[in-house]
Structures are given as structure tokens and as C-alpha cells.
Design a binder for these strands. Sequence first.
DNA 1: GTCTATAATTTGATAGAC
DNA 2: GTCTATCAAATTATAGAC
Lengths: 193, 193
Amino acid sequence: MIGKLVFFYNLSQTIIMSQRERILDIAETSMRARGYNAVSFREIAGEIGIKSASLHYHFPKKADLGLELVKRYSENFRTALNSATENAANPIEKIEAFIDLHRNALIEQELLCLCVVLGAEARSLPEDVNSSVANFFQSNINWLTDAYQDAGFENAPSRAKAGVATLAGALIASDSLKDNSVFEAAADSVLKS
Amino acid sequence: MIGKLVFFYNLSQTIIMSQRERILDIAETSMRARGYNAVSFREIAGEIGIKSASLHYHFPKKADLGLELVKRYSENFRTALNSATENAANPIEKIEAFIDLHRNALIEQELLCLCVVLGAEARSLPEDVNSSVANFFQSNINWLTDAYQDAGFENAPSRAKAGVATLAGALIASDSLKDNSVFEAAADSVLKS
DNA sequence: GTCTATAATTTGATAGAC
DNA sequence: GTCTATCAAATTATAGAC
């Protein structure tokens, strides 16, 4: 097999997904559910239907996979954020879109944010993976600072720091309690002026 | 050796710490730094100076250790909270004490909250460990709801959910960014009316 | 790109002596 | 309570054939 056929409902188009992307998809799902250290090469390979030795062809070390996962996740997050906000009528709608990305992870995907999970395991991870996770949080704080500023909120930088923290913790607490009202309460607080 | 001598500065008293407590202390520190799956019996035993086989005498399975850790952590947290709030002049001081417990973990201990870390790894953990982690979050939400109510804040239950989430996420983001201002911004938002 | 085979290490766990 | 000895399984990783 050279490529998995993926049909997108909104594109009358067929895309050949590379094996590399398929590996990243499965690894991301697994790690967002159970963490970096609970996921093995064998398990990822098994879900695709190849051997773990083949996985090492694509990602020589686990650290290589981890780093690429965080980079791709950050890029995809940014792309989704841009796409969801390009037609926003006002800055509040942008902040709502930011919240929606988190809500979608928790409720539709039933997964946490990759960087929240890796952030919790930080000291057991390769250092460059940690740096990338930190970059993700900083980018989000910067983005949210701008949005709060545009919306005319006071103390935008401080609000943005609190907002990013709130959504991160909301994923964990809401998931643990299996109570989406925790996430919604957190989302409300991020929007409140 | 039958007991490690522990001197408390505020008690002119010497306490013999049981081996069981010593194991729990080291396991807690390790797991709060690196997560459940990155910590092994051999490593914990090594730090105490015994063999991993001896550790199995105290905690037959890793799940037994994990469960006991969460229970003890929850009890200690509650005891510290009661102790810190018994002389509080008003409900706001109580909420500040709640925040202080988190601040102390991050800044003094340089560790995350055990239940925040385990919550992020939830799906890779034994189910009873997860239940105990969920209990921790629910207890804190209940406690904070009462405090907000006493302080006369509106929507106390919703605020409490957001507050617990905010402090949980603040630990992760602040630690990842090595930027305590993230925690302080989050702490401010928890206190704001 | 994927496979088989294998190495080197780590891990959770047990049996039985002291 | 702790030890030695040991196990079975899992893990990351590499070499070399196809």
C-alpha cells in the first residue's frame, strides 16, 4: 500500500495521505489520550499494520516523532485558528473561535490538547520537545493578547495568560470529571469582560 | 535503618517516618515531576536505598501505589487547606489560601499538582486511580463553590469550576514557559469579582 | 519502505532465603 | 522488611535482506 485514501466531505477530491502523516495522526491521537510515555512504537506501528522497525525509518528516535508531533500540532492549530477567524465579525468572535478549538478537542474528538498533556509530563521529555510545547503556549498567549486588545478589554496580556491557562486546565478537569459543564464554565470565564 | 528522622521547624519534636511514608514521598515527588508512566519501582527504591522487590512488599502492584498516592495527596491537600483557612478573616482570604497551595507547589516545591499530572495521563491509568483524581477535582470545586458563595460572588458554582480549571492549567503553562507571571495572572483572575 | 532478526535495557512482578 | 535471583514481557533501537 502506498497511500491511504482520504475523502474530505467538503472537497470533491481525493488526497493521498503519506505514511508519515498517517503515523503522525495515530501517534497524536494516542498521546493526546494517554501521554508520551504510555505510547510505544510497536503500538503505533500495529495500528497502521506495519512493524515498529519500519516506523524507525520515518522517525529514527522517539524524540524525533515527539518533536514533529508538537510542531505539526502547533501548525495545524494555527491554521485552524486563522481559518476560523478570517470571517469573524468582531474580536469577540475570534476569542469564541479560539475557545471552540478547545471545545472541539474535548467534546468532538474526546481528546486533550497535545501540548497540555506533554506539558504535564514535561520533565520526562526530550528538551527540544519541551521547548516546542512552551512555544505553543506562548504563541497562544500572544494571539489571545491581541484579541483581547482588539476587543477593548483591560489588562489584555494578563487576561490572555489566564485565558490560556484556564482552557488548558478545563480540558483536564472536564475530562477527568466527565462533566462538560466544567469546560463551559471555564469558557464563559474566558469571555467575560 | 528503621526510620528516617524528620525535624519540623515548628515542632520541637522528632518524628519517625515510616518506610511506607518515605516511599510515598519519593513516588509523589517523582510523579508530580514526570508523570505516572515515567516513574519505575526500581527508581523509587533506588532513591531510598532498597531494592524494587522490597517496594513490592509495601505496594504489591503499581496501581496500589498510584491509588494510595492520590488518596494521601488529597487528604494532605485538604488538611493544609483547613489549616490555612481556620484563622481566615473573611472568605476572600480563604480563596487566597486555596490559590497559595497551588502557588507553593509551583514556586516553592517546583512541582505540579499530582492530580493535574495524572489527569493528563488519565486514559493510561488504572480506573480507580482515575476515580480518585476526579474526586480531588470535585472536592475542590465544591470547596471553592462554598467559598465564592460566602464571599457573595455571583454564579458561585460556575466560578468554582472555572477557578479549579484555571489553577490546574496555570501550573502546566507557567511551568512549561518557566514564567511565573502566567500563574500570577491566573491567580488574579480567580480572585476577580 | 517494509521486513526479519536481534540486541540491550527496562519494567512490573514473584519465589524463597534471611 | 529486605535481600538475591529470576522471569516474562515490553521497549527503544539497529543491521541487513528484499
